[in-house]
Simulated scan of single mutants.
Amino acid sequence: MAGFGEPGADPVDATGLVVGVVAARWHGELTDHMVDRAVEAARACDARDVVVARVAGSVELPVVAQALAPRCDAVVALGVVVRGSTAHFDLVCRSVTDGLTRVSLDTGKPVAHGVLTVETLDQARDRAGLPGSAEDKGWAATVAALDAALAIRRLADAARPVGFGH
Rank of each mutant, 00 (worst) to 15 (best):
A87H: 12
A145N: 11
R43D: 14
A112K: 07
F4I: 15
H166D: 12
A14D: 07
V52G: 14
A74I: 01
R54G: 02
D73T: 05
A140S: 15
V50D: 02
R37D: 13
V162W: 06
G132H: 09
T142G: 04
S58N: 11
S85W: 13
D122F: 12
V115Y: 00
A42E: 01
R25Y: 00
R37I: 03
L155E: 07
A159C: 08
E135K: 12
V82I: 15
V35F: 00
V75F: 05
T142W: 08
A2T: 12
D49T: 14
D32F: 09
A144V: 04
D147F: 02
H88Y: 07
H27L: 03
T142C: 08
V76E: 01
G165F: 03
A112M: 08
P131W: 12
T117M: 14
D106M: 07
G8F: 11
F89D: 01
L146Q: 07
R54P: 03
A9Y: 10
D136G: 12
R71G: 15
D36Q: 15
H33G: 11
E60G: 03
T97D: 03
V81G: 05
V64R: 05
H113F: 15
H113P: 03
V82M: 11
C45E: 11
R160H: 05
A38T: 07
G84W: 05
A23I: 05
L100I: 14
A124I: 13
V21N: 00
G57V: 06
V50T: 15
